[in-house]
Design a protein around this nucleic acid. Structure first.
Lengths: 237, 237
DNA sequence: TAATTTGTTAATAAAGTGTTAACTGCGGTT
DNA sequence: AACCGCAGTTAACACTTTATTAACAAATTA
C-alpha cells in the first residue's frame, strides 16, 4: 500500500511538464490534482482539501501570485511552493522566501521538489483534526458547507454540530469524492486500525452521515457489497 | 509451460527495433502486444489489461507523453517505461528520473530494459480486484464497458451491477481473450483453489456471464469439453 | 447406452449491511 | 466521590446480497 494520503494541487500550464511532475508525485504516493491555469486552480481549491500546492508563477490569465493571494484569503496555512523562472527579480524572490512558502527555480529536479514537499508536509503536521491534513476553513459539499475547524455542517442558514469522528469521516470522503473506497482504506485512514467491531462502528457512522446529508439528493453514500463505499456528489445543472 | 503471466504493451514506431524487442521479451516469457503508433496503442489499451507498458516518446502523430497522459487518466498505476531520445530537455528528463515510472535513453541494452521491467513488475504486484491495484478504470469488451472498480458492466447507456466474483472472472477473461483457459487455471487464479464444488460454482458464473454478454453476439464463452473455456471477442468490421 | 461433463435454475447457507438502542469510559461538575 | 453528559463502541435484530450446493436437464464422449 504505502499511502501517504497527502493531497496536492499542481498548477502548471506546460502540458508535458505537468504530466511528468504529476506522474512522479503520484509514484511517490501523493494524491495529485492538476490545474492548467489559475481559474481552474481556484475552482478546485474551493471544493477540495489540499495539503500542499505547487504553483507555477507564469500562468496564462491570472498569474501565480494572484492565485496564491486568493488562496491565502481562505487558508492561511496550506504550504505553497512556487515554480519560478530564472529571470525573476530579486525582491520577489526574497519576498517569497520570507514566508512559510518556498520557491524552486526552473529547471528543477524532481528530487528537489520532492524534498521540499516532504519538508513542508512534515512541518505543517500539528493540528487538532487528527490525521494528516491542514485546515481549510470551508469546504463545499453539494448544498452543504463543511467547517472542519468548527466541526459544523451547515445548510440553508442552519448549522449542525459534528463530532470529531464524524468530521474526520466527512473530510476523508470529501477528499475522495466519487471514488470507491474500501472499508479497509477508510478504517486505516480515519480510525487508524481495522478490526471487525470498528467495521461495525463505521457502519454506524455511515448511517448517521446519510441522515445528515439526506437533504441534498445529489449527495449519496453508496455501498459496494464486500468492498466499501462511494461518497458521490452529483453536480446539478 | 513457464508462463510469466505478465502481459506487456510495447509501443515503438521503428519496425526493426519493435520486432527485436518484442522477440526478446517473449524469450523471457512475457506476453507481448505491440503498437506502432500512439493511436493503436490507445486502442489496444482500451480493450486489454496490461501489467506494464514500454513507450517510445518519439512517435508519429501522438507523442509518447500524450499517450501516457491518456493512459494515466484510465489507470493511475500501471508502470510505464519511456524510451527517450538523447535530445530531451534537461528539466523534463530530470523530472522523469525519479518516479516509479522510468526512462531509458536510446540506444539501450535489452538487459537494461529487462531488468527495469522485472523491478517494476515485482513492485507493483498484480493484486486481486478488492485490493485496488493496477486497475484500469474502464475496459472495452465488445460493445460493453467494464468498470472493475465500480463493479459495473454497461452497454448502450444502461449499466448493470456486478458482484465481486463476477467482476474478477470477467477481468480474468478480459486479460486473456480468445485463449483457451483450463478449468484449473481459472479456479486457481480467480477462486484461489480448486475442488469439485468450486468447479460447479464456476459453471454457475459462466452461465451468468453468458447471459450478461448475450446482447453482443461477438462475445462468446465457449466450452471445450473436459478442458475449460474460451472467452472470445470477434471484432466486427 | 452408460458414464461423465456441462448448462441452468432454484434452494440453502454464509456473509455483509442498515439501523436503533444499550453500553462503556472519560472528562468535567457538583 | 458520586453524577452527568457525551462520543464512540458494542450489541442486537432485521434485512439484503452473495456464493455455494443441490437438483435435474441436456450434451458429449467412449
Amino acid at each position: 500500500m504505502a499511502e501517504s494520503e497527502y493531497k496536492l494541487l499542481l498548477v502548471e500550464d506546460d502540458e508535458a511538464l505537468r504530466f511528468i511532475v504529476k506522474d512522479n508525485l503520484e509514484q511517490n504516493n501523493y494524491l495529485v490534482e492538476v490545474a492548467e491555469n489559475g481559474e481552474i486552480a481556484l475552482e478546485l481549491f474551493n471544493s477540495n482539501i489540499y495539503d500542499l500546492i505547487v504553483l507555477d508563477v507564469m500562468l496564462p490569465k491570472i498569474d501565480g501570485f494572484e492565485v496564491a493571494r486568493t488562496i491565502r484569503q481562505k487558508n492561511e496555512q496550506v504550504p505553497i511552493i512556487f515554480l519560478t523562472a530564472r529571470s525573476m527579480t530579486e525582491d520577489k524572490i526574497t519576498a517569497l522566501t520570507l514566508g512559510a512558502d518556498d520557491y524552486i527555480p526552473k529547471p528543477f529536479s524532481m528530487e528537489e521538489l520532492l524534498l521540499k514537499i516532504k519538508i513542508f508536509l512534515k512541518r505543517s503536521q500539528t493540528h487538532p483534526l487528527a490525521g494528516s491534513s491542514n485546515l481549510t476553513k470551508l469546504i463545499s459539499i453539494g448544498k452543504f458547507q463543511f467547517h472542519p475547524e468548527e466541526l459544523t455542517l451547515s445548510f440553508n442558514g442552519s448549522s449542525r454540530n459534528l463530532t470529531l469522528k464524524e468530521a474526520e469521516l466527512i473530510r476523508f470522503f470529501a477528499k475522495h469524492p466519487n471514488k470507491v473506497l474500501s472499508r479497509n482504506e477508510i478504517l486505516e485512514k480515519v480510525w487508524g486500525s481495522n478490526d471487525y467491531f470498528l467495521g461495525r462502528s463505521l457502519d454506524v457512522f455511515i448511517s448517521r452521515l446519510r441522515k445528515y446529508f439526506s437533504q441534498d439528493s445529489n449527495i449519496k453514500i453508496t455501498n459496494l457489497h464486500g468492498i466499501g463505499f462511494r461518497f458521490s456528489i452529483k453536480n446539478e445543472k
